[in-house]
Design a protein around this nucleic acid. Sequence first.
DNA 1: TTCTCTTTGCAACTTAGTTGCGATTTTGGG
DNA 2: CCCAAAATCGCAACTAAGTTGCAAAGAGAA
Lengths: 140, 140
Amino acid sequence: MKQNAVELLRSSNLRQTGPRIAILMAMMKANAPVTQEQIAEQLGPLAPNKTTIYRTLMNLVKKNLVHKAYIEGRTWHFELAHHCGQHQCHPHFTCSQCLQTRCIPGVSAPLIKLPEGFTMHRQQIRIEGLCSVCRNKNRR
Amino acid sequence: MKQNAVELLRSSNLRQTGPRIAILMAMMKANAPVTQEQIAEQLGPLAPNKTTIYRTLMNLVKKNLVHKAYIEGRTWHFELAHHCGQHQCHPHFTCSQCLQTRCIPGVSAPLIKLPEGFTMHRQQIRIEGLCSVCRNKNRR
DNA sequence: TTCTCTTTGCAACTTAGTTGCGATTTTGGG
DNA sequence: CCCAAAATCGCAACTAAGTTGCAAAGAGAA
């Protein structure tokens, strides 16, 4: 997995530093978009400083190795780009009751047709609803 | 227009107060999602306190008269629900160069099929790209 | 008009992300 | 292998945006 991270950095012409490799590895382990805080938590006491985490994430976004996910709440979430299509991320579902977010892999919507002269870089879908767990709870 | 705002409040069983009517009217004038600050600015010196604006917006969201739009940046944007479909808002386009956001009215994507047991309340689409103005600027 | 419940404004506060800057690390060249 | 230049990092102080608690004002039913 570390090899994988190193490879990603090399392919994007980014220097291979400890913090970057650690952050990428932490994101590989996650199966949903993560926040700065979750990354730090995951890496434990040797986690990089939060400034470094934010700066790294923003660099990775710029290089298109990572995408920012648009999710309810005030906190930014990020995920590795390699499960996303070229112009479209997989949808994200947020339960409006338990507030958990999860990816909905393997599905996508047709790309929206933009007005004349506009170029699409990326289309993202966010869904709000009730997850099956909460739905069952409500039934009782 | 004021009548319209009053009607919205009545139909949702909300008390008709000055701040609420003013905020709804400000949103009716806008043709893209607005922030608390933009609402205050629009209403000028007699704008309600920012706490009131936030609280009002959150109430209106709860009543489904207003939706929160998911847009790049740290600031919340809101728009009236009456241009949105029942389970889907119109897409929002943000230019990654000038950062302006605009609505793309009249188009939508098929609703994503959720996993068994999940219920959809609302699907929202966010597109990032280059608007025609910026694209032309880059050409030169 | 009065009473009750809701809404508002204010000021202080919290959270999440940002900035500036000196110290450290990476990497390419000798 | 070693060095210098450029990129990156960590820290502490800061900013922006939204939140909270509470007393005062307002809405609407009787």
